[in-house]
Measured scan of single mutants.
Amino acid sequence: MQIFVKTLTGKTITLEVEPSDTIENVKAKIQDKEGIPPDQQRLIFAGKQLEDGRTLSDYNIQKESTLHLVLR
């Protein structure tokens, strides 16, 4: 499924993921596309910060959901 990741600069990254993918996994995909190390990434969905060990389905993230990427 496709999800979108919006950065603070207003750029939107499109990722191909599975509901069973972990947040860690998603961060690795963002690193592949954008070169941002996962340890600098914070992903936010519905106002919650997403934890590395959880999966997209844990957070009920469905196709075409938009996550927000904050760098630390």
Rank of each mutant, 00 (worst) to 15 (best):
K29T: 03
P37W: 12
V17G: 02
K33G: 07
Q49R: 13
D52K: 14
R54I: 06
D21T: 15
F4V: 10
L15W: 01
T66I: 14
G53H: 13
K48V: 10
F45T: 02
Q40M: 13
D58S: 12
M1V: 04
Q41M: 13
Q62K: 12
N60F: 15
L50R: 00
L67V: 09
R72P: 09
D39W: 09
D32F: 06
L43K: 00
D21R: 05
T14C: 02
T12K: 13
A46L: 06
F45M: 05
I13E: 02
Q31K: 14
M1P: 02
V17Y: 06
F45R: 03
L56V: 07
T9K: 06
I23H: 02
M1Q: 15
K33S: 07
T7C: 02
V26K: 00
R42G: 06
T22I: 13
Y59Q: 10
T14K: 13
I30D: 00
F45H: 04
L71A: 07
G53L: 06
R72E: 14
L69Y: 02
S57L: 12
I13S: 13
I3L: 08
E16D: 13
G47D: 09
D39G: 10
R42P: 01
G10Y: 05
L8C: 02
S65D: 04
K27P: 00
L50H: 00
P19R: 06
E64R: 14
T7S: 11
K6H: 14
T7E: 08
L56Q: 00
K63E: 14
R42A: 09
Q31R: 05
E64D: 09
K63R: 15
R72H: 14
I23Y: 02
K33C: 02
K63V: 08
K11C: 03
P19L: 09
V5N: 00
E16S: 10
G47K: 05
L56A: 03
N25T: 08
D32C: 03
Q2L: 14
I61H: 01
I44A: 07
T66A: 04
E18W: 04
N25F: 15
V17E: 01
L67E: 01
I23F: 03
S65M: 14
D21L: 06
L15R: 00
P19A: 13
I23N: 01
I36K: 03
V70A: 04
Q49K: 07
R54S: 09
V26D: 00
D52L: 05
L69M: 07
V26W: 01
Q2P: 04
S57F: 07
I61Q: 01
E18C: 02
Q40V: 10
D32S: 11
I61L: 06
E16I: 13
L71R: 12
Y59W: 03
Q2N: 15
G35R: 14
D39T: 05
I23T: 14
D52F: 08
V70C: 03
H68I: 04
D52W: 05
N60H: 10
I44Q: 12
L56F: 03
T66Q: 05
V70E: 08
D39Q: 11
D58P: 01
S20R: 08
V5R: 00
T7Q: 04
I36L: 06
S57E: 15
P37V: 15
P19E: 12
R42N: 12
L50E: 00
S20V: 15
T55W: 13
E34H: 07
I3T: 01
P37Y: 06
F4W: 05
R42S: 15
E18G: 11
L50M: 09
D32W: 12
V17I: 04
V17C: 02
V5E: 00
F45C: 02
K6T: 08
K6V: 13
K48A: 07
Q41V: 14
L50G: 01
A28D: 07
S57G: 10
L15I: 08
L50I: 13
D52H: 12
I13K: 01
I61C: 02
V26C: 02
E64F: 11
K63P: 12
L15G: 00
A46G: 09
I36C: 02
I13W: 06
Q62G: 07
T9P: 13
F45L: 06
M1I: 04
V17Q: 12
V5I: 14
A28H: 07
F4R: 05
L69F: 03
L71H: 15
P38T: 07
L67I: 08
S20I: 10
E16V: 09
E51N: 05
L69H: 01
M1N: 03
Q40S: 11
A28P: 01
T14P: 12
L56C: 02
R42T: 06
I3A: 01
Q2R: 04
A46M: 14
T55Q: 10
Q62C: 02
T12L: 11
V70D: 04
K63N: 06
E34A: 09
T55M: 04
Q49V: 15
K63D: 10
G35E: 04
L50W: 01
G10T: 09
P19I: 09
I36F: 13
S20T: 13
P37K: 14
T66N: 03
E34K: 11
G35Q: 06
T12C: 02
Q41F: 13
K48C: 02
F4G: 06
V26G: 00
S20E: 13
